[in-house]
Amino acid sequence: MFFDIKYLYELFPQIISSLPITLSIVVVSTIGGLILGLIIAYFRIERIPLLNWLGALYVSFVQGTPIIVQLFVVYYGAPAVLDLAGINVADVSKISFMFIAYGLNSAAYFSEIIRAAINDIPKTQFDAAYSVGMNKYQAYRKIIIPQATKAMAPNVEVSVVSLLQNSSLATYLGIMDIMGKSQLVGTNTGHQMEAYIDAMVIFMVLSLAVHYLFRYFGLTKRHIKFRLYNVRPLAETNELSFKKVK
């Protein structure tokens, strides 16, 4: 039997049971990535010698290689680094490697988002902050970061959604996330199609959830994705006029 709708229901509970794995990868890597990304962005905005250059190189590497390759480079390469730090690799679980790999990956993307958002803020905002007697830290804290947060939120959302999708690659390392679990139960029951459709639905719902979560916290407006390109000032006149006269 090629397709049996009954299995859609029967396999779903088994697949959804691995939701915590997928979610933990997304949440841990997002938080870790944001912190590390902020540090890299700081190096690059303030043009700290050497670190600025290393940051750029790191970002270029992460953005220039497939995430699957990064996962394995970390998986096979991290033990050597951990050894040096005196940590027994046998104590480190597989999923911890995933946290490290996805966190490192997100950091690069987040650093670029943060950097672009802060660079886009007009220099006059700094001037204005300094002119009322703020120091650099206060200017960032009170004036620049609040504006940048709004500007970068849509891009962060896109990043989190793609992290959610990329988390499915942990399957390659035998992690039982949504993707891995659906593969497993699909093969076991011989109803792979139903299992994969379940997984698709879960991924769609999760992405929508991310989208509405961002909106709920007022970080994004409706359906703005490529924000940088979305600016079109409304003239005094009817902006739809050219569409009406057709």
Binding site: E236, T237, N238, S241, F242, K244, V245
Partner: peptide, 13 residues
């Protein structure tokens, strides 16, 4: 004024 001019050129309906 501008809207009026645009109407004459039918850029606005």
């Amino acid at each position: 004024k501008t809207t009026f001019l645009r109407c004459i050129n039918l850029l606005n309906t």
